[in-house]
Amino acid sequence: MKIFSCLYFSILFNLALATSAPLVSAEEKVFVPTSFQLYYGSDPKIMSQLQEQLKKGQVVVIDLRGLNQNQITTLIDHAHQVGAKVIAYISVGELESLEKTNFKQFLKQHKKPTLLEKISIGKNEIFQSCHIDVNNSMWHKYLFKKIDQIYDQKVDGLFLDTIDTVDVYINQQEWPVSRRAKSVKAMIDLVRKFKESSPDKFIMQNRGLNLIGKSVFVGEETGILVPGLYLSKSHPHNPDGLLWESAYTHTGDWIDGKEREMIQIQKNGFTSVFTLGYTDTKADRRQFFQKSQAAGFIPAWGSSTKTLHKELTQGITTK
């Protein structure tokens, strides 16, 4: 009887171990972002500094276009060793001047040579790029072709820039409200499509704060409510991260409301909120870090949007 009892409890113990082991393993694989770094350049010295500063939980944004294969591979390999993630820049709502040739060639290959004129809806004078109406299937195909090339480099995800082109749609007076709403919805669907197509990748949205709530109002006195990303609620295809760039620079009812939304988003934990402040804005550096910490956001600081290819951003511990 004693032998049977010992054997019985031994079997139960081994079964418990077998059942619990995968759960522990799964928990260890969960990535929890704790810090943020962004660098668009390729200077070897700065790249070495970036690599040396990598740490567990860090999300690093880079622009692959200026880097050689050795720089990319070395950075990503080391990031994986320490438990960091490297994600790559891609412009979603704007076509940069350097990319125009590639896109025009793409359109020629698909026998759509004049499409750019139809989907270009104005110019970003600061960065000399043109706003793109993402409500177009060929633009989607072009983006996903670029993404396939990006993922060939073994990066951990995407940094979705120029999502705030959605603000151009909302305020496009030449379009009827229904047309504006259609493009707003197209941007929301596209953001989710990036995550849906590669669920294991870390997707971070930059700006586009009009989209983060339960709904987006499109119109003037009257209008249409478009369902938003609703980042404070769980959704399998919502972005993993949201960057509030130029945080705490502006004041007013709208941005105050968005700040409250982002605090709730961070608190609920479905999407992590990051902040990036700049010296050449009205934001106070000390206050920027204090507010970010109090809200639970993950902050970084830079000199200017125009120097992100020249220097590393600075974290909360940098004096």
Rank of each mutant, 00 (worst) to 15 (best):
E259Y: 12
E221Y: 07
I188A: 04
K56D: 14
H110V: 08
V92I: 15
Q37F: 04
K111I: 09
V155N: 03
A181V: 05
N68F: 09
T74S: 15
D161S: 06
V60M: 10
T318N: 12
T74R: 14
D256R: 11
W301P: 00
F31Q: 04
G252S: 03
R260F: 12
L75D: 09
I72K: 12
L23A: 07
K233D: 12
S246E: 13
K118P: 09
K2V: 14
N124R: 15
T73E: 14
T307F: 08
H80I: 10
K104I: 09
L95H: 01
R207Y: 04
V86W: 02
Y151N: 10
K282M: 14
V216K: 01
L160E: 00
D253W: 05
K100D: 07
K123W: 11
R179E: 10
F36C: 05
I316D: 11
F289A: 01
E245S: 05
F289K: 02
M1F: 08
L67K: 09
F13Y: 14
D164K: 10
K258H: 08
A181S: 11
N238W: 03
N171Y: 08
V61Y: 01
T114Y: 15
S292R: 02
L243T: 01
F274S: 03
Y40V: 04
K2M: 10
T271L: 04
K154A: 12
I126F: 13
A88V: 10
I212D: 00
D156L: 00
Y142P: 03
N14Q: 14
L143C: 04
E174G: 06
A26Q: 10
S97D: 13
N70P: 02
L231R: 01
S129A: 13
G257K: 09
R286L: 11
K111T: 09
W175G: 05
I298A: 02
V61P: 00
M262Y: 02
V86C: 09
S304D: 15
M204D: 03
I265G: 02
A84S: 15
D240M: 06
S234F: 15
P33F: 05
Y89T: 06
Q266F: 01
S91I: 04
G213N: 06
E94G: 07
M47S: 04
E99P: 01
